[in-house]
Nucleic acid binder design. Structure first.
Lengths: 175, 175
DNA sequence: TGCAACGATTGCAGACTGTGCAAGGTTTTT
DNA sequence: AAAAACCTTGCACAGTCTGCAATCGTTGCA
């Protein structure tokens, strides 16, 4: 069972759900979308908090990510299953990618309340959303690490990278 | 013709290519992969240049991206077509996403020659690859802008975002 | 109560993607 | 020339997903 999804037919899924195959496709556009579901959106209140926050931007973003990861951590089993599906199902990856793109656009608009340049906001949104993906990846591949701890590690990498890219102090390069 | 790919069958593609449908699937794993092809890898020499570069990291990365975008710009027609396919074909998106993930991992190893922390390298690779995606997006949506100019705009956003995230000077936040 | 409208569910036929297998043909090697 | 390797093809088949039309239960209203 390399995939787990390819080894199950829609007929079987529908039967197990107690509906006809035709009805299954009335509910879900396709098998993969049904399997991975929709990733949780950033909550409106969290986005508002980010919009109106006054702490340094990095701290407010980290807080948003912590909240999001907290939500994700509630369903570790699902997260792990979805991860396994994504690893070997290209269509599923594309569907998720589309959903995450929407979230990133959404987040870009939020950031526009904090910075006045759209490209900057887009870069921040990209960094933020991919940090979550990176945390999940690390959590999946490292033993005995919580999702939250994984995010901390990833985020520190993001901050260090920003430090290097903003290039304010070449001295760090020296060792 | 909303998609252009869904309105064409593999039978037609194979026939137009002068081979049987069965042979078509010997060459390509599926229709979408055949349509979008494999994105150009970073060239080995460019990666070497990045590994051994001595300029500030941001400058070396920008140079790599410029080179890559230069390559992409050679086939603007293809780029535009692929973009149209990706917009409405989830499976194609997933396939490309997989290929880009591989490139990102590849780039992460390269960055490990410049920074000693894997998470930092991963964040840099993520930033770099997504800047290319962002540039293509901007180029597709803005009239009268070259790919190279789009990258410049996107990259400036990345640098500004890094500036904000590294948080070395809260003064900028003040206005 | 009767009936009409509505949405949800279903079966069925069919188009399409992709794979396994075996047959046939061509090229290369010995 | 014989053998080996390789490429192409046809065929059968499993599986996904859609369009269409029929059915059924519920609700609202006369």
């Amino acid at each position: 069972m390399q995939n787990g999804l390819e080894s199950v037919t829609t007929d079987e899924i529908a039967a197990a759900s107690g509906v006809s195959t035709r009805t299954f496709f009335n509910y879900y556009p396709n098998k993969e979308a049904a399997a991975i579901g929709h990733p949780p959106d950033f909550s409106d209140s969290d986005k508002d908090a980010l919009r109106t926050g006054t702490a340094p931007l990095a701290d407010d973003i980290k807080w948003l990510l912590d909240r999001q990861v907290e939500t994700l951590a509630k369903d570790e089993a699902i997260l792990r299953m979805v991860g396994r599906i994504l690893k070997c199902n290209e269509k599923a990856r594309g569907i998720l990618d589309g959903a995450l793109s929407d979230q990133r656009e959404d987040l870009t608009e939020v950031f526009l309340s904090r910075v006045n340049n759209r490209q900057t906001a887009a870069a921040l949104a990209q960094t933020a959303t991919s940090a979550i993906g990176g945390a999940i990846f690390l959590w999946e591949h490292e033993d005995n690490i919580t999702l939250s701890a994984a995010l901390d590690r990833v985020w520190q990498g993001v901050i260090d990278a920003s430090w290097l890219l903003s290039g304010t102090h070449e001295k760090d390069q020296l060792y």
